[in-house]
Design a protein around this nucleic acid. Structure first.
Lengths: 202, 202
DNA sequence: AATAAATAGATATAATTATATCGATAAGGT
DNA sequence: ACCTTATCGATATAATTATATCTATTTATT
Protein backbone atom coordinates (compact mmCIF):
# COMPACT_ATOMS: atom_id res chain seq x y z
CA UNK A 1 0.00 0.00 0.00
CA UNK A 2 1.17 3.49 -0.72
CA UNK A 3 -0.97 5.20 1.88
CA UNK A 4 0.82 8.52 1.72
CA UNK A 5 0.16 10.07 5.07
CA UNK A 6 -1.26 13.58 4.78
CA UNK A 7 -0.45 15.75 7.82
CA UNK A 8 -3.28 16.80 10.05
CA UNK A 9 -2.71 20.46 9.34
CA UNK A 10 -3.25 19.83 5.65
CA UNK A 11 -6.33 17.71 6.20
CA UNK A 12 -7.82 20.56 8.17
CA UNK A 13 -7.35 23.00 5.31
CA UNK A 14 -8.67 20.74 2.58
CA UNK A 15 -12.36 21.29 3.39
CA UNK A 16 -11.88 25.00 2.92
CA UNK A 17 -10.22 24.58 -0.45
CA UNK A 18 -13.00 22.27 -1.48
CA UNK A 19 -15.66 24.72 -0.36
CA UNK A 20 -14.30 27.56 -2.43
CA UNK A 21 -13.46 25.47 -5.46
CA UNK A 22 -17.08 24.35 -5.61
CA UNK A 23 -18.41 27.82 -4.93
CA UNK A 24 -19.70 30.39 -7.38
CA UNK A 25 -16.36 32.17 -7.21
CA UNK A 26 -14.88 29.68 -9.61
CA UNK A 27 -17.98 28.72 -11.50
CA UNK A 28 -16.57 30.08 -14.76
CA UNK A 29 -13.09 28.71 -14.32
CA UNK A 30 -11.89 25.48 -15.74
CA UNK A 31 -8.43 26.09 -14.32
CA UNK A 32 -7.46 27.53 -10.94
CA UNK A 33 -4.14 28.95 -9.82
CA UNK A 34 -2.67 28.50 -6.37
CA UNK A 35 -2.10 32.23 -6.17
CA UNK A 36 -5.75 33.05 -6.63
CA UNK A 37 -6.91 30.32 -4.31
CA UNK A 38 -4.43 31.46 -1.68
CA UNK A 39 -5.82 34.99 -1.76
CA UNK A 40 -9.35 33.75 -1.26
CA UNK A 41 -8.67 31.33 1.55
CA UNK A 42 -6.21 33.66 3.21
CA UNK A 43 -3.21 31.36 3.39
CA UNK A 44 0.22 31.88 1.87
CA UNK A 45 0.53 30.80 -1.73
CA UNK A 46 3.41 28.42 -1.08
CA UNK A 47 1.37 26.72 1.58
CA UNK A 48 -1.53 26.28 -0.81
CA UNK A 49 0.77 24.93 -3.48
CA UNK A 50 2.25 22.39 -1.12
CA UNK A 51 -1.16 21.35 0.12
CA UNK A 52 -2.41 20.84 -3.40
CA UNK A 53 0.76 19.05 -4.43
CA UNK A 54 0.13 16.65 -1.61
CA UNK A 55 -3.25 15.55 -2.91
CA UNK A 56 -2.90 16.13 -6.59
CA UNK A 57 0.38 17.31 -8.07
CA UNK A 58 -0.96 18.02 -11.50
CA UNK A 59 -0.60 21.75 -11.78
CA UNK A 60 0.90 23.35 -14.82
CA UNK A 61 3.05 26.49 -14.81
CA UNK A 62 1.31 29.59 -16.10
CA UNK A 63 -1.98 27.68 -16.06
CA UNK A 64 -2.77 26.32 -12.65
CA UNK A 65 -4.75 23.26 -11.75
CA UNK A 66 -7.74 21.70 -13.40
CA UNK A 67 -10.56 22.59 -11.07
CA UNK A 68 -12.63 19.47 -11.42
CA UNK A 69 -9.67 17.21 -11.04
CA UNK A 70 -8.63 19.12 -7.95
CA UNK A 71 -12.10 18.80 -6.45
CA UNK A 72 -12.05 15.09 -7.05
CA UNK A 73 -8.60 14.63 -5.61
CA UNK A 74 -9.44 16.62 -2.49
CA UNK A 75 -12.60 14.62 -2.00
CA UNK A 76 -10.60 11.45 -2.28
CA UNK A 77 -8.04 12.71 0.23
CA UNK A 78 -10.83 13.63 2.62
CA UNK A 79 -12.49 10.34 1.89
CA UNK A 80 -15.76 12.11 1.40
CA UNK A 81 -16.69 10.63 -1.95
CA UNK A 82 -18.87 8.14 -0.17
CA UNK A 83 -21.53 9.19 2.32
CA UNK A 84 -21.01 8.87 6.03
CA UNK A 85 -23.61 8.88 8.74
CA UNK A 86 -23.45 10.38 12.18
CA UNK A 87 -25.60 10.36 15.27
CA UNK A 88 -25.78 12.67 18.26
CA UNK A 89 -26.01 11.62 21.85
CA UNK A 90 -27.35 14.75 23.31
CA UNK A 91 -28.36 16.89 26.09
CA UNK A 92 -27.25 20.42 25.23
CA UNK A 93 -28.57 23.31 23.23
CA UNK A 94 -26.28 22.48 20.37
CA UNK A 95 -28.09 19.29 19.48
CA UNK A 96 -30.87 20.73 17.46
CA UNK A 97 -28.53 23.18 15.80
CA UNK A 98 -26.36 20.34 14.61
CA UNK A 99 -29.31 18.17 13.69
CA UNK A 100 -30.86 20.90 11.57
CA UNK A 101 -27.68 22.21 10.01
CA UNK A 102 -27.33 21.10 6.43
CA UNK A 103 -23.86 22.36 5.74
CA UNK A 104 -22.36 18.99 6.60
CA UNK A 105 -23.84 17.50 3.47
CA UNK A 106 -21.29 19.50 1.52
CA UNK A 107 -18.83 16.87 2.69
CA UNK A 108 -21.24 14.00 2.34
CA UNK A 109 -21.79 13.70 6.06
CA UNK A 110 -25.31 13.29 7.37
CA UNK A 111 -26.44 13.64 10.95
CA UNK A 112 -29.25 11.15 11.03
CA UNK A 113 -30.64 11.09 14.54
CA UNK A 114 -30.29 12.18 18.09
CA UNK A 115 -30.46 10.05 21.20
CA UNK A 116 -31.29 11.59 24.53
CA UNK A 117 -30.28 10.46 27.99
CA UNK A 118 -33.34 12.08 29.47
CA UNK A 119 -35.79 11.31 26.75
CA UNK A 120 -39.03 13.17 26.92
CA UNK A 121 -41.48 11.18 24.85
CA UNK A 122 -44.22 13.73 25.05
CA UNK A 123 -42.80 15.79 22.22
CA UNK A 124 -43.05 14.35 18.80
CA UNK A 125 -39.76 15.37 17.35
CA UNK A 126 -38.40 13.81 14.23
CA UNK A 127 -35.31 11.72 14.52
CA UNK A 128 -35.09 12.04 18.28
CA UNK A 129 -35.03 8.83 20.28
CA UNK A 130 -34.25 7.56 23.76
CA UNK A 131 -30.73 6.39 24.39
CA UNK A 132 -31.98 2.85 24.78
CA UNK A 133 -32.63 2.74 21.05
CA UNK A 134 -29.09 3.64 20.12
CA UNK A 135 -27.60 0.18 19.99
CA UNK A 136 -30.19 -1.20 17.65
CA UNK A 137 -30.11 1.91 15.48
CA UNK A 138 -26.36 1.67 15.00
CA UNK A 139 -26.69 -1.96 14.03
CA UNK A 140 -29.36 -1.24 11.42
CA UNK A 141 -27.92 1.93 9.98
CA UNK A 142 -24.35 2.45 8.96
CA UNK A 143 -23.12 4.90 11.58
CA UNK A 144 -19.44 5.73 11.73
CA UNK A 145 -19.45 9.08 13.51
CA UNK A 146 -20.70 9.95 16.98
CA UNK A 147 -21.33 13.42 18.33
CA UNK A 148 -21.37 13.85 22.08
CA UNK A 149 -23.13 16.81 23.62
CA UNK A 150 -24.04 15.36 26.98
CA UNK A 151 -22.86 16.90 30.23
CA UNK A 152 -19.52 16.43 31.81
CA UNK A 153 -20.42 13.60 34.12
CA UNK A 154 -21.86 11.37 31.39
CA UNK A 155 -19.44 12.07 28.58
CA UNK A 156 -16.92 9.30 29.16
CA UNK A 157 -19.61 6.67 29.64
CA UNK A 158 -21.31 7.69 26.40
CA UNK A 159 -17.95 7.70 24.69
CA UNK A 160 -17.30 4.14 25.84
CA UNK A 161 -20.72 3.14 24.59
CA UNK A 162 -20.06 4.64 21.17
CA UNK A 163 -16.71 2.91 20.94
CA UNK A 164 -18.38 -0.38 21.78
CA UNK A 165 -20.83 0.25 18.95
CA UNK A 166 -17.92 0.45 16.55
CA UNK A 167 -17.96 4.16 15.97
CA UNK A 168 -14.64 5.35 14.62
CA UNK A 169 -14.78 9.13 15.06
CA UNK A 170 -16.13 11.13 17.95
CA UNK A 171 -16.87 14.83 17.97
CA UNK A 172 -16.94 15.82 21.60
CA UNK A 173 -18.73 18.98 22.71
CA UNK A 174 -18.48 18.25 26.41
CA UNK A 175 -15.66 19.88 28.36
CA UNK A 176 -14.00 16.57 29.10
CA UNK A 177 -10.89 15.07 27.61
CA UNK A 178 -12.07 11.65 26.50
CA UNK A 179 -10.09 8.44 26.75
CA UNK A 180 -10.42 6.23 23.70
CA UNK A 181 -8.59 3.32 22.07
CA UNK A 182 -5.94 4.21 19.52
CA UNK A 183 -8.03 3.37 16.52
CA UNK A 184 -10.75 5.87 17.41
CA UNK A 185 -10.36 9.52 16.48
CA UNK A 186 -11.61 12.24 18.80
CA UNK A 187 -11.98 15.92 18.17
CA UNK A 188 -12.58 17.98 21.28
CA UNK A 189 -14.84 20.90 20.47
CA UNK A 190 -14.93 22.78 23.71
CA UNK A 191 -16.85 25.89 22.75
CA UNK A 192 -16.35 27.75 26.00
CA UNK A 193 -12.62 27.08 25.93
CA UNK A 194 -12.45 28.24 22.32
CA UNK A 195 -14.14 31.49 23.07
CA UNK A 196 -12.06 32.01 26.19
CA UNK A 197 -8.87 31.58 24.18
CA UNK A 198 -10.13 33.99 21.55
CA UNK A 199 -11.04 36.56 24.17
CA UNK A 200 -7.64 36.42 25.84
CA UNK A 201 -5.50 39.46 25.15
CA UNK A 202 -7.90 41.59 23.23
CA UNK B 1 6.22 46.70 30.04
CA UNK B 2 7.09 43.06 30.52
CA UNK B 3 4.28 41.68 28.38
CA UNK B 4 5.67 38.18 28.16
CA UNK B 5 4.08 36.76 25.08
CA UNK B 6 2.35 33.47 25.74
CA UNK B 7 2.19 31.24 22.63
CA UNK B 8 -1.16 30.58 21.09
CA UNK B 9 -0.92 26.86 21.73
CA UNK B 10 -0.54 27.51 25.44
CA UNK B 11 -3.39 30.01 25.55
CA UNK B 12 -5.61 27.39 23.99
CA UNK B 13 -4.83 24.88 26.72
CA UNK B 14 -5.23 27.26 29.65
CA UNK B 15 -9.03 27.16 29.69
CA UNK B 16 -8.93 23.41 30.11
CA UNK B 17 -6.52 23.59 33.02
CA UNK B 18 -8.70 26.21 34.60
CA UNK B 19 -11.81 24.13 34.15
CA UNK B 20 -10.39 21.11 35.90
CA UNK B 21 -8.64 23.06 38.63
CA UNK B 22 -11.97 24.61 39.57
CA UNK B 23 -13.84 21.32 39.26
CA UNK B 24 -14.84 18.91 41.97
CA UNK B 25 -11.90 16.74 41.09
CA UNK B 26 -9.62 19.00 43.06
CA UNK B 27 -12.07 20.30 45.58
CA UNK B 28 -10.15 18.74 48.46
CA UNK B 29 -6.71 19.69 47.21
CA UNK B 30 -4.82 22.73 48.29
CA UNK B 31 -1.87 21.71 46.14
CA UNK B 32 -1.89 20.20 42.65
CA UNK B 33 0.89 18.40 40.83
CA UNK B 34 1.60 18.69 37.14
CA UNK B 35 1.63 14.93 36.90
CA UNK B 36 -1.91 14.55 38.16
CA UNK B 37 -3.19 17.45 36.12
CA UNK B 38 -1.52 16.04 33.03
CA UNK B 39 -3.28 12.71 33.46
CA UNK B 40 -6.64 14.38 33.74
CA UNK B 41 -6.32 16.75 30.81
CA UNK B 42 -4.60 14.14 28.68
CA UNK B 43 -1.44 16.05 27.80
CA UNK B 44 2.15 15.10 28.54
CA UNK B 45 3.35 16.06 31.97
CA UNK B 46 6.28 18.07 30.67
CA UNK B 47 3.95 20.05 28.48
CA UNK B 48 1.72 20.82 31.43
CA UNK B 49 4.70 21.85 33.53
CA UNK B 50 5.96 24.19 30.85
CA UNK B 51 2.52 25.66 30.38
CA UNK B 52 2.16 26.30 34.09
CA UNK B 53 5.68 27.66 34.36
CA UNK B 54 4.73 30.15 31.68
CA UNK B 55 1.91 31.66 33.69
CA UNK B 56 3.00 30.99 37.22
CA UNK B 57 6.37 29.41 37.92
CA UNK B 58 5.76 28.81 41.58
CA UNK B 59 5.68 25.05 41.79
CA UNK B 60 7.59 23.26 44.47
CA UNK B 61 9.29 19.87 44.10
CA UNK B 62 7.46 17.00 45.75
CA UNK B 63 4.51 19.31 46.42
CA UNK B 64 3.21 20.81 43.24
CA UNK B 65 1.45 24.10 42.76
CA UNK B 66 -0.87 26.00 45.02
CA UNK B 67 -4.23 25.49 43.40
CA UNK B 68 -5.76 28.84 44.17
CA UNK B 69 -2.71 30.73 43.09
CA UNK B 70 -2.63 28.73 39.88
CA UNK B 71 -6.27 29.47 39.19
CA UNK B 72 -5.64 33.14 39.72
CA UNK B 73 -2.57 33.20 37.51
CA UNK B 74 -4.31 31.37 34.70
CA UNK B 75 -7.24 33.73 34.90
CA UNK B 76 -4.87 36.64 34.65
CA UNK B 77 -3.10 35.11 31.68
CA UNK B 78 -6.44 34.56 29.98
CA UNK B 79 -7.48 38.03 31.01
CA UNK B 80 -10.76 36.65 32.27
CA UNK B 81 -10.72 38.22 35.67
CA UNK B 82 -12.95 40.95 34.40
CA UNK B 83 -16.20 40.26 32.60
CA UNK B 84 -16.47 40.56 28.85
CA UNK B 85 -19.60 40.89 26.81
CA UNK B 86 -20.39 39.42 23.43
CA UNK B 87 -23.17 39.75 20.90
CA UNK B 88 -24.26 37.51 18.06
CA UNK B 89 -25.16 38.63 14.60
CA UNK B 90 -27.14 35.71 13.52
CA UNK B 91 -29.01 33.72 11.06
CA UNK B 92 -28.18 30.10 11.70
CA UNK B 93 -29.38 27.35 13.99
CA UNK B 94 -26.40 27.86 16.26
CA UNK B 95 -27.56 31.25 17.49
CA UNK B 96 -29.99 30.12 20.10
CA UNK B 97 -27.66 27.38 21.24
CA UNK B 98 -24.95 29.93 21.87
CA UNK B 99 -27.34 32.42 23.40
CA UNK B 100 -28.69 29.87 25.85
CA UNK B 101 -25.43 28.17 26.67
CA UNK B 102 -24.17 29.19 30.05
CA UNK B 103 -20.80 27.51 29.97
CA UNK B 104 -19.13 30.68 28.75
CA UNK B 105 -19.70 32.31 32.12
CA UNK B 106 -17.04 29.99 33.47
CA UNK B 107 -14.60 32.31 31.74
CA UNK B 108 -16.50 35.46 32.57
CA UNK B 109 -17.83 35.87 29.09
CA UNK B 110 -21.48 36.71 28.59
CA UNK B 111 -23.39 36.54 25.35
CA UNK B 112 -25.85 39.32 25.86
CA UNK B 113 -27.95 39.62 22.76
CA UNK B 114 -28.53 38.53 19.23
CA UNK B 115 -29.15 40.70 16.20
CA UNK B 116 -30.86 39.33 13.14
CA UNK B 117 -30.52 40.36 9.54
CA UNK B 118 -34.01 39.14 8.81
CA UNK B 119 -35.69 40.16 12.00
CA UNK B 120 -39.09 38.68 12.59
CA UNK B 121 -40.76 40.92 15.13
CA UNK B 122 -43.76 38.70 15.57
CA UNK B 123 -41.97 36.45 18.04
CA UNK B 124 -41.28 37.86 21.42
CA UNK B 125 -37.90 36.46 22.09
CA UNK B 126 -35.71 37.81 24.82
CA UNK B 127 -32.54 39.54 23.81
CA UNK B 128 -33.21 39.24 20.10
CA UNK B 129 -33.24 42.44 18.10
CA UNK B 130 -33.10 43.67 14.52
CA UNK B 131 -29.69 44.41 13.09
CA UNK B 132 -30.55 48.08 12.94
CA UNK B 133 -30.35 48.22 16.73
CA UNK B 134 -26.82 46.88 16.86
CA UNK B 135 -24.94 50.15 16.59
CA UNK B 136 -26.76 51.80 19.43
CA UNK B 137 -26.56 48.68 21.58
CA UNK B 138 -22.81 48.45 21.21
CA UNK B 139 -22.48 52.09 22.18
CA UNK B 140 -24.55 51.66 25.32
CA UNK B 141 -23.21 48.32 26.46
CA UNK B 142 -19.60 47.37 26.67
CA UNK B 143 -19.29 44.82 23.88
CA UNK B 144 -15.86 43.56 22.91
CA UNK B 145 -16.66 40.25 21.23
CA UNK B 146 -18.73 39.57 18.14
CA UNK B 147 -20.07 36.24 17.01
CA UNK B 148 -20.99 35.87 13.37
CA UNK B 149 -23.39 33.17 12.30
CA UNK B 150 -24.85 34.76 9.20
CA UNK B 151 -24.62 33.15 5.81
CA UNK B 152 -21.67 33.22 3.52
CA UNK B 153 -22.71 36.18 1.42
CA UNK B 154 -23.24 38.53 4.37
CA UNK B 155 -20.35 37.50 6.59
CA UNK B 156 -17.72 39.96 5.40
CA UNK B 157 -20.11 42.89 5.52
CA UNK B 158 -21.16 42.04 9.07
CA UNK B 159 -17.53 41.61 10.00
CA UNK B 160 -16.73 45.08 8.67
CA UNK B 161 -19.63 46.45 10.64
CA UNK B 162 -18.41 44.84 13.86
CA UNK B 163 -14.92 46.17 13.31
CA UNK B 164 -16.34 49.64 12.81
CA UNK B 165 -18.15 49.26 16.14
CA UNK B 166 -14.83 48.69 17.81
CA UNK B 167 -15.17 45.00 18.43
CA UNK B 168 -11.81 43.39 19.03
CA UNK B 169 -12.49 39.69 18.69
CA UNK B 170 -14.68 37.88 16.20
CA UNK B 171 -15.84 34.30 16.38
CA UNK B 172 -16.83 33.37 12.88
CA UNK B 173 -19.19 30.47 12.24
CA UNK B 174 -19.68 31.22 8.58
CA UNK B 175 -17.59 29.28 6.07
CA UNK B 176 -15.74 32.39 4.94
CA UNK B 177 -12.22 33.48 5.66
CA UNK B 178 -12.73 37.01 6.96
CA UNK B 179 -10.47 39.95 6.22
CA UNK B 180 -9.86 42.15 9.26
CA UNK B 181 -7.36 44.80 10.38
CA UNK B 182 -4.34 43.57 12.30
CA UNK B 183 -5.61 44.63 15.69
CA UNK B 184 -8.74 42.46 15.45
CA UNK B 185 -8.57 38.77 16.32
CA UNK B 186 -10.62 36.25 14.37
CA UNK B 187 -11.28 32.63 15.11
CA UNK B 188 -12.81 30.71 12.26
CA UNK B 189 -15.18 28.08 13.60
CA UNK B 190 -16.21 26.26 10.49
CA UNK B 191 -18.22 23.39 11.88
CA UNK B 192 -18.70 21.55 8.63
CA UNK B 193 -15.00 21.75 7.86
CA UNK B 194 -14.16 20.52 11.35
CA UNK B 195 -16.37 17.51 11.04
CA UNK B 196 -15.10 16.80 7.53
CA UNK B 197 -11.52 16.80 8.79
CA UNK B 198 -12.45 14.52 11.65
CA UNK B 199 -14.23 12.13 9.34
CA UNK B 200 -11.30 11.87 6.94
CA UNK B 201 -9.45 8.58 7.16
CA UNK B 202 -11.59 6.74 9.63
C1' DA C 1 12.43 32.45 -33.01
C1' DA C 2 13.19 35.23 -28.98
C1' DT C 3 11.49 37.21 -24.91
C1' DA C 4 8.57 38.18 -21.04
C1' DA C 5 5.25 36.89 -17.58
C1' DA C 6 2.93 33.74 -14.65
C1' DT C 7 3.09 29.89 -12.12
C1' DA C 8 4.24 25.15 -10.48
C1' DG C 9 7.50 22.45 -7.94
C1' DA C 10 11.81 21.66 -5.44
C1' DT C 11 14.97 22.87 -2.00
C1' DA C 12 16.29 25.33 1.92
C1' DT C 13 15.25 27.76 6.03
C1' DA C 14 12.70 29.35 9.87
C1' DA C 15 9.22 29.25 13.36
C1' DT C 16 6.41 26.84 16.27
C1' DT C 17 5.24 23.20 19.13
C1' DA C 18 6.00 18.96 21.71
C1' DT C 19 8.90 15.50 24.06
C1' DA C 20 12.78 13.49 26.41
C1' DT C 21 16.51 13.70 29.73
C1' DC C 22 18.71 15.10 33.76
C1' DG C 23 20.03 17.56 37.85
C1' DA C 24 18.12 20.03 41.90
C1' DT C 25 15.03 20.37 45.72
C1' DA C 26 11.64 19.62 49.19
C1' DA C 27 9.15 16.29 52.23
C1' DG C 28 8.82 12.08 54.70
C1' DG C 29 10.46 7.89 56.43
C1' DT C 30 14.40 5.20 58.43
C1' DA D 1 21.31 13.02 59.96
C1' DC D 2 20.68 10.26 55.78
C1' DC D 3 18.26 8.08 52.21
C1' DT D 4 14.25 7.66 49.17
C1' DT D 5 10.72 9.45 46.48
C1' DA D 6 8.01 12.69 44.04
C1' DT D 7 8.24 16.57 41.64
C1' DC D 8 9.84 20.88 39.55
C1' DG D 9 12.68 23.43 36.31
C1' DA D 10 16.25 23.69 32.87
C1' DT D 11 18.40 22.07 28.88
C1' DA D 12 18.50 19.51 24.81
C1' DT D 13 16.28 17.25 21.12
C1' DA D 14 12.75 16.07 17.97
C1' DA D 15 8.64 16.65 15.31
C1' DT D 16 5.57 19.45 13.06
C1' DT D 17 4.26 23.27 10.47
C1' DA D 18 4.98 27.41 7.71
C1' DT D 19 7.70 30.51 4.74
C1' DA D 20 11.23 32.00 1.59
C1' DT D 21 14.03 31.35 -2.41
C1' DC D 22 15.24 29.50 -6.62
C1' DT D 23 14.66 26.95 -10.97
C1' DA D 24 12.00 25.08 -14.63
C1' DT D 25 8.05 25.10 -17.50
C1' DT D 26 4.27 26.73 -20.13
C1' DT D 27 1.79 30.27 -22.61
C1' DA D 28 1.38 34.70 -24.74
C1' DT D 29 3.67 38.51 -27.08
C1' DT D 30 6.84 40.68 -29.93
Amino acid sequence: MCEKKIPKSVIERLPTYLHYLKSDMFKNNEMVSSVKLAKIVGYGEVLVRKDLAMVSGTGKPKIGYNKNELVMKIMEALDCVKMKNAIIVGGSHFDSALLLDESFSEYNIFIKAKFEINYNGSFNRTNVFPLSDLKEYCKKEDISIGIITVGEKDAQAICDLLVSLNIKAIWNFSPVKLKVPENVKVKEENMAASLAALAANI
